[in-house]
């Protein structure tokens, strides 16, 4: 099987940009802690919902490697192409998602873009209506965790295109 990157070589696409730093090799204890964080944060969350959260955060943070991984994992888990494609414009395509998913996606954006200022009460309260307290705490932890992976992916410029679904599941 050829990877998408192999396919594009013959089509005149730009060259693949090299990784800046193999951070997990240079900081193995940090990597181990990230794996522990991921395992702990996803406990109790609906896996399909968590993939939507991961894709949306990775879109906002522009993490190509994370988008490659999580769109492939979502598709492999049975998510629809339509829901993945529409996610970047979810405010205009609300009828593709449940109210619970929409509340989680909105909270994802607020917790991801902290630099614009806080997490609005109405966003938090909408999420609190759809998620019970322990589940909401896990959701916040899960949004935090994908944001952490995004930071490693973008800063170290991890290369997208080579992920096989299930590799990290």
């Amino acid at each position: 099987m050829t990877t998408p990157t192999d396919d594009t070589k013959s089509q005149g696409y730009a060259a693949e940009v090299p990784v800046r730093l193999n951070w997990s090799q240079h900081a193995p204890e940090v990597y181990k802690a990230m794996i522990r964080l991921e395992t702990a944060a996803k406990r109790g969350l609906d896996p399909a919902l968590y993939e939507l959260v991961k894709i949306r955060a990775s879109q906002i943070n522009h993490c190509a490697f994370c988008l490659d991984m999580h769109t492939k994992d979502a598709l492999a888990a049975g998510e629809s192409v339509e829901r993945i494609v529409q996610l970047a414009a979810w405010e205009e395509s609300r009828h593709f998602y449940t109210e619970k998913e929409l509340a989680a996606i909105e909270l994802t954006e607020a917790v991801t873009v902290l630099t614009d200022g806080f997490v609005p009460d109405e966003v938090y309260e909408r999420a609190a209506k759809h998620f019970d307290e322990p589940e909401l705490a896990q959701l916040i932890a899960a949004i935090t965790t994908i944001n952490a992976w995004n930071r490693f992916g973008v800063t170290c410029r991890m290369t997208p295109g080579h992920y096989t679904p299930g590799q990290q599941a």
Binding site: E29, V30, K32, A33, M34, R36, L37, T39, A40, A41, R43, Y124, A128, E133, P134, L136, A137, Q138, I140, A141, A148
Partner: peptide, 17 residues
Amino acid sequence: ARTQLLDRGVAQALSAL
């Protein structure tokens, strides 16, 4: 008020990080 819950495993992993 917002939830003050934080899963112990999450807190421990992030402290280790």
